[in-house]
């Protein structure tokens, strides 16, 4: 009983503190989600003890099934648990505000910078690095696809169609592909596979 009360007590964190903590996470994470995850683990799990490592792993899995950036998902979830709606709002704003302000300032200056020759030259190289980084992420993600033949076929068809549509100038939004994937996932795993299994069982009987 005492233990339970203690854990209830430990749950409360002020909105201001949530805002500051997530602001720090937003400010010190460069280069996207994976880098941020390391930082979150250190700050939220190790230092603050706001959630256990298992909970964080569960949370990351959950973030993959909800839309949007993982940082925002986590901020909203943890903020809500620690201080209700206000906590969720403050934690989410914490991630957003510094990122937003810095990028806004960069956007104001960058356009003027691009008229200088050295900057243009540097960005020829930056473009190559960006393409390399995206390719690297794409290939490491593609390794996950191997799990089932359904996933592999879907992956290949969508990738080939996307590239074909690009070169043939066919206007077909990526959103439709996502919706088709959602539909096919439900069709195959919620309908066809359970039905065929039922059928097999009946045959056995």
């Amino acid at each position: 009983m005492n233990c339970l009360m203690k854990s209830e007590e430990a749950k409360k964190v002020s909105s201001w503190k949530l805002f500051l903590t997530f602001m720090k996470l937003g400010l010190f994470s460069f280069g996207g989600g994976a880098a941020m995850l390391m930082l979150i683990k250190e700050e939220i799990v190790t230092k603050k003890g706001w959630m256990s490592e298992e909970e964080l792993a569960e949370m990351v899995g959950l973030s993959e099934s909800t839309p949007g950036p993982i940082a925002i998902n986590l901020a909203t979830y943890l903020g809500y648990r620690k201080h209700g709606f206000l906590g969720a709002l403050c934690a989410t704003l914490g991630v957003m505000v510094p990122t937003f302000l810095i990028m806004f300032i960069v956007s104001m200056f960058f356009r003027n910078l691009m008229q200088y020759e050295p900057v243009q030259y540097a960005f020829i190289g930056v473009k190559c690095a960006v393409v390399f980084l995206i390719l690297r992420v794409a290939f490491s993600l593609a390794k996950q696809v191997k799990s089932s033949s359904f996933a592999v076929i879907l992956f290949l068809i969508v990738a080939i169609l996307m590239i074909l549509f690009h070169y043939l100038n066919i206007d077909f939004s990526a959103i439709y592909f996502i919706l088709i994937g959602l539909f096919l996932g439900l069709l195959v795993y919620s309908l066809i596979i359970p039905l065929t299994q039922k059928h097999k069982e009946e045959v056995k009987k």
């Binding site: 099934s65 794409a138 993600l141 996950q144 696809v145 359904f150 992956f155 990738a159 069709l187």
Partner: peptide, 24 residues
């Protein structure tokens, strides 16, 4: 059912990143 839908969404999302990477 959400898990099942994601089994369809995930390969598509990765295919989109891959094709965009190759196009770029």
């Amino acid at each position: 059912h959400i898990k099942n839908a994601l089994k369809g969404i995930n390969p598509v999302a990765i295919a989109l990143i891959m094709s965009t990477a190759l196009i770029l």
